[in-house]
Design a protein around this nucleic acid. Structure first.
Length: 196
DNA sequence: GCCACCGGTGGC
DNA sequence: GCCACCGGTGGC
């Protein structure tokens, strides 16, 4: 059963944005009945759907909240587009506490990783991991009093549909005799690595 | 082998 | 000097 969430992410940040931009441009969810993709109008709505997707499966009729009369008979909202990267999100990620931002940043193609997730606090502090987040919450107890606790955060990254986007380990594959026609990697100046 | 975490640094 | 971005790795 495929996970029914997907996001289209742009490769380059919006030009001249002073603040850091989320790389995600469109939020989409798949109808459990007809499997068509429906655009979700806002990030907030998307996060709300994602949080409960397993208890409350999404279907086209759910989109009537923002689109009158939409049904499975309407054609799909999105087709994959060459200018965008597509990624599958994890279900059941808690909705971002109000006043906070959960930001996904794409990395450059060909690196070791597809994307980074980080949170920005209402006071504009940027956190890169659960450890940093918990430390920050401990140092700022007022958040916890409001119910903003560590369990409401998740650093789970979406997964690129393009399997070749990342993982381009620049490490040479150690190649004893038999990997002859494996791939077309340039063999220029790659340090030899021994063993596994 | 994977990935959460964080140190390093290039570009501003 | 800052910080966005990336690579490396320790712990599982």
């Amino acid at each position: 059963m495929p996970v029914s969430l997907i996001m289209a992410v742009q490769q380059e940040p919006k030009m001249s944005a002073k603040q850091v931009w989320d790389s995600v441009e469109h939020y989409t969810v798949r109808c459990t009945k007809c499997s068509k993709w429906r655009l979700i109008p806002t990030k907030e709505k998307y996060e709300q759907i994602r949080e409960k997707i397993e208890e409350e499966p999404f279907q086209c009729e759910s989109a009537r909240e923002w689109r009158q009369n939409i049904s499975c008979n309407d054609q799909t909202d999105v087709k994959q587009d060459d200018n965008l990267q597509w990624a599958m999100d994890k279900p059941s990620i808690p909705r971002t506490p109000s006043g906070w931002q959960r930001i996904i940043r794409l990395r450059a193609k060909g690196g070791t990783k597809f994307a980074d997730v980080y949170y920005v606090s209402p006071s504009n502090k940027r956190m890169r991991s659960k450890v940093e987040l918990e430390r920050y919450l401990a140092e700022n107890p007022s958040y916890q009093e409001e119910g903003v606790v560590a369990s409401r955060f998740s650093f789970q990254s979406p997964v690129a549909l393009d399997a070749d986007y990342a993982n381009a380990k620049r490490r040479a594959v150690s190649a004893p005799e038999d990997t002859s026609a494996n791939h077309t990697q340039k063999d220029e100046a790659i340090p030899k690595v021994i063993g596994v």
